[in-house]
Amino acid sequence: MQRVNMIMAESPGLITICLLGYLLSAECTVFLDHENANKILNRPKRYNSGKLEEFVQGNLERECMEEKCSFEEAREVFENTERTTEFWKQYVDGDQCESNPCLNGGSCKDDINSYECWCPFGFEGKNCELDVTCNIKNGRCEQFCKNSADNKVVCSCTEGYRLAENQKSCEPAVPFPCGRVSVSQTSKLTRAETVFPDVDYVNSTEAETILDNITQSTQSFNDFTRVVGGEDAKPGQFPWQVVLNGKVDAFCGGSIVNEKWIVTAAHCVETGVKITVVAGEHNIEETEHTEQKRNVIRIIPHHNYNAAINKYNHDIALLELDEPLVLNSYVTPICIADKEYTNIFLKFGSGYVSGWGRVFHKGRSALVLQYLRVPLVDRATCLRSTKFTIYNNMFCAGFHEGGRDSCQGDSGGPHVTEVEGTSFLTGIISWGEECAMKGKYGIYTKVSRYVNWIKEKTKLT
């Protein structure tokens, strides 16, 4: 034993070699072989497995989906700052455009905790909710729209109204504003409101030439003092309507412009014939205590009207009353817009006519005020429907199939267009061939041609 100890002390290297040989010859039971080890760690190889990531292109799944990435790591994937920024906006807080917040056709661009709407022409605001041009839906104005110097929408209202708090709607500024039905039992019968379409306001006024200088022999019209197929109006439903009495009662109609003036057809009036105007009328054979009678003290036909040349060209006249009318729910003026808007309103496509005229061709006159909704007829169809001249200051309205029309005794009465609950004068009943005849239409004086003249002559002093 002493000898062994001496050998170990003198030859430590020998001992180490012996131990190493023993270990190498022993069977290893701690580690699995290569094949079995792979069965336990069965993990798919990654895209760049075996390579240094710093030297390969980034992978979106590896960089940002398996674990949260930084902007720089995302930049490695896209290799483009702009594309990385677009991805980053949604990656950080989701897609803010998912709810489609942009209105009126706006395009949404996502941002971090926010979004941006790219608005089409005519709109602005956070969600493109603000109209900035009158060309689109009248700028959301209830009545009139004008573009300011910086191309912003400025709404306005006709006389007797003021802008509401929203700067879009119009509200009454006087007790009985024009064009409004205020009798409670008839307010439910107000005709369907007309909503502004998209309009090209630059070209809204037709490029028409008034044929002022045409000389033409007097034409022989049949029954051209021209509501057939209409309905009984309720008291106060058309408070701007008046009836004219002269040699015979209810020979023509008219509309209240203001307390002192009536507008009617020029062919209705004769110099030297006494005319009485009755406002607030409903049943011409009954006294309903809503009527107001006034005498006409002055007749002003349009300066281009000449019955000797043509009885229905420039067929418009103004009547001055001896005493002002007292405005109330049964006696209310009709609204008159400017030339541009009167023309736009007419193009809405349908209007209402009213009167006490004959209820059928050569038949009896109506006792109760009649009204009828009539569609506008395109000019080409209008011209083809008659052998008589249709001037540019006239328009056609009615039904091709016949059966409904204005008729004798309705002449001078109103053709009105309702705009968001307020009625505007767009025409004056003038003439036609018979009444409600198939293929024939009622012919009306186009008020847009005469609004400046009306307003100039009827100013209240």
Score class of each variant (00 low, 15 high):
residue 7 I to Y: 05
residue 8 M to P: 07
residue 9 A to F: 13
residue 9 A to G: 14
residue 11 S to G: 13
residue 14 L to A: 05
residue 14 L to Q: 02
residue 16 T to A: 12
residue 16 T to K: 05
residue 18 C to D: 01
residue 18 C to I: 12
residue 21 G to S: 11
residue 27 E to V: 02
residue 32 L to Y: 14
residue 35 E to S: 09
residue 35 E to H: 05
residue 41 L to V: 15
residue 42 N to F: 05
residue 43 R to Q: 13
residue 46 R to C: 14
residue 46 R to Y: 11
residue 47 Y to E: 10
residue 48 N to Q: 07
residue 48 N to M: 12
residue 48 N to H: 07
residue 51 K to W: 02
residue 54 E to M: 07
residue 57 Q to W: 04
residue 58 G to N: 12
residue 65 M to G: 03
residue 76 E to F: 15
residue 80 N to S: 11
residue 83 R to A: 13
residue 85 T to H: 03
residue 87 F to G: 15
residue 88 W to A: 15
residue 90 Q to I: 14
residue 92 V to C: 11
residue 94 G to N: 12
residue 95 D to R: 15
residue 100 N to F: 08
residue 101 P to T: 12
residue 102 C to E: 01
residue 102 C to S: 00
residue 105 G to H: 13
residue 105 G to R: 12
residue 109 K to R: 10
residue 109 K to S: 07
residue 110 D to C: 10
residue 111 D to M: 11
residue 113 N to L: 07
residue 113 N to S: 02
residue 116 E to P: 05
residue 117 C to W: 01
residue 124 E to V: 13
residue 127 N to L: 13
residue 136 I to E: 13
residue 142 E to K: 06
residue 142 E to G: 04
residue 145 C to F: 02
residue 146 K to E: 11
residue 146 K to V: 07
residue 146 K to D: 09
residue 151 N to S: 06
residue 152 K to G: 10
residue 154 V to N: 06
residue 157 C to V: 00
residue 158 T to V: 06
residue 162 R to W: 07
residue 165 E to Q: 08
residue 168 K to R: 02
residue 170 C to P: 01
residue 175 P to S: 10
residue 176 F to M: 04
residue 178 C to A: 01
residue 179 G to T: 00
residue 182 S to T: 08
residue 183 V to T: 13
residue 184 S to L: 09
residue 187 S to P: 11
residue 188 K to R: 09
residue 191 R to N: 12
residue 192 A to D: 10
residue 193 E to T: 05
residue 197 P to S: 08
residue 197 P to D: 08
residue 210 I to Q: 14
residue 211 L to C: 12
residue 215 T to F: 13
residue 216 Q to K: 03
residue 224 F to A: 06
residue 224 F to G: 09
residue 224 F to S: 07
residue 230 G to V: 12
residue 232 D to R: 10
residue 238 F to Q: 04
residue 240 W to V: 00
residue 242 V to A: 04
residue 243 V to Y: 12
residue 247 K to E: 05
residue 250 A to S: 09
residue 252 C to W: 00
residue 253 G to F: 07
residue 255 S to Y: 01
residue 260 K to P: 01
residue 262 I to E: 01
residue 263 V to G: 00
residue 267 H to I: 02
residue 271 T to W: 03
residue 272 G to K: 09
residue 278 V to S: 07
residue 282 H to F: 04
residue 282 H to S: 11
residue 283 N to T: 12
residue 293 K to E: 09
residue 298 R to G: 04
residue 300 I to E: 05
residue 300 I to D: 01
residue 302 H to K: 01
residue 305 Y to N: 02
residue 307 A to H: 07
residue 308 A to Y: 13
residue 313 N to D: 13
residue 318 L to V: 08
residue 322 D to H: 05
residue 323 E to M: 14
residue 323 E to R: 04
residue 329 S to L: 04
residue 336 I to F: 07
residue 341 Y to L: 11
residue 347 K to H: 07
residue 350 S to M: 11
residue 353 V to N: 02
residue 356 W to Q: 08
residue 357 G to E: 13
residue 362 K to D: 14
residue 364 R to N: 14
residue 364 R to E: 07
residue 367 L to R: 13
residue 368 V to M: 15
residue 369 L to C: 03
residue 370 Q to M: 07
residue 377 V to N: 02
residue 381 T to R: 11
residue 385 S to V: 15
residue 385 S to R: 14
residue 389 T to C: 15
residue 390 I to Q: 14
residue 393 N to K: 04
residue 394 M to S: 14
residue 394 M to L: 13
residue 394 M to I: 14
residue 395 F to H: 02
residue 397 A to G: 13
residue 401 E to V: 03
residue 408 Q to D: 15
residue 409 G to W: 13
residue 410 D to I: 13
residue 411 S to T: 09
residue 416 V to Y: 11
residue 424 F to M: 00
residue 426 T to F: 00
residue 426 T to S: 02
residue 431 W to D: 10
residue 434 E to A: 14
residue 434 E to G: 14
residue 438 K to A: 04
residue 439 G to I: 02
residue 440 K to T: 14
residue 441 Y to S: 04
residue 441 Y to I: 12
residue 448 S to L: 02
residue 450 Y to M: 02
residue 451 V to G: 07
residue 452 N to D: 14
residue 453 W to A: 01
residue 454 I to L: 13
residue 455 K to R: 14
residue 456 E to Q: 07
residue 456 E to A: 07
residue 456 E to V: 08
residue 460 L to Y: 15
